[in-house]
Design a protein around this nucleic acid. Structure first.
Lengths: 142, 142
DNA sequence: TCAACAGTTTAGAATAAATATAATGTATTA
DNA sequence: TAATACATTATATTTATTCTAAACTGTTGA
């Protein structure tokens, strides 16, 4: 597996030792053909389905949080009962389908750059995210 | 109290009977000089501090959710352990100070209108929110 | 005015995500 | 390879939110 090195590197840079469980988590997160959104619970399920390694919830939480801190994963700002994460760490935005509880990526190119004219003294902007909530377009609405 | 009528109206329009507790909630939410952000816990505290009426958590949750559904309150999309709400229901955006866990309004005029070029078939956009996360601007940061 | 009903309130229980704990196991290092 | 520091895990804890069911209250119509 040519990717192992890369994962070990990511883990070390995140201040984590490369263990069997953590490398498994990396494989699921960073081996995928496309980037994807997930909740912790979903991630655990994927891991269990794809391999016979069992990884505890605590380990998944710890690893995901370390990756977020390092910028290898992104948390999606959304008021939901559980947190959503994104393996797409490039600058982009989201539709959130409130009826199906589903997130859809919006490429950066599809949104004009958000220009905020106001600043807060002593603070700098670390990230700007746009959330567009969408619902069914039944003509017969208000 | 000249406002009572207005509150009773808001409650009825939300499908709720105007009870003592609910009117109390309205007073706190809609009597304030400025709009404000709150969590459910904070709202309960304010109610307890300002009057001798006791209102249960369940009633506060129910009333707040009914108002959100009707558009009298807004939920702020934010991944936090608890939900944040806003009495400012006009179109506006937010800074979120990650170090102090504090929300700051950004007036609509301070953000160029967010133009999303992509659409989802059968869906329409219900709201567009911008969240800009801010942190201390210590020059000594990468 | 009052009875009857439908809707409300509430304390406390239930749920569920996230975090903490502490005993056991493993990677690292010298 | 032994010693150490860090990891893993099952389980317990915490905490926001939702649910429940019994007691209560606003509303309606006679």
């Amino acid at each position: 597996m040519a990717y192992a090195e890369q994962y070990i590197d990511k883990l070390r840079k995140s201040g984590l030792r490369p263990t069997k469980q953590r490398i498994r988590i990396c494989e699921v997160l960073f081996d995928a053909e496309k980037t994807f959104h997930f909740t912790i619970k979903e991630l655990v399920k994927i891991i269990e389905n794809q391999a016979n390694i069992k990884v505890s919830l605590a380990t998944v939480y710890n690893t995901v949080h370390a990756f977020i801190k390092k910028g290898y994963l992104k948390e999606i700002p959304l008021n939901a009962s559980q947190s959503y994460y994104d393996t797409n760490v490039t600058h982009h935005h989201h539709f959130f389908d409130e009826e199906e509880n589903k997130l859809i990526d919006i490429h950066q190119d599809d949104v004009d750059e958000v220009n905020i004219k106001r600043t807060i003294p002593g603070k700098k902007i670390r990230s700007v995210e746009v959330i567009a909530k969408i619902v069914s377009d039944n003509q017969s609405q208000n």
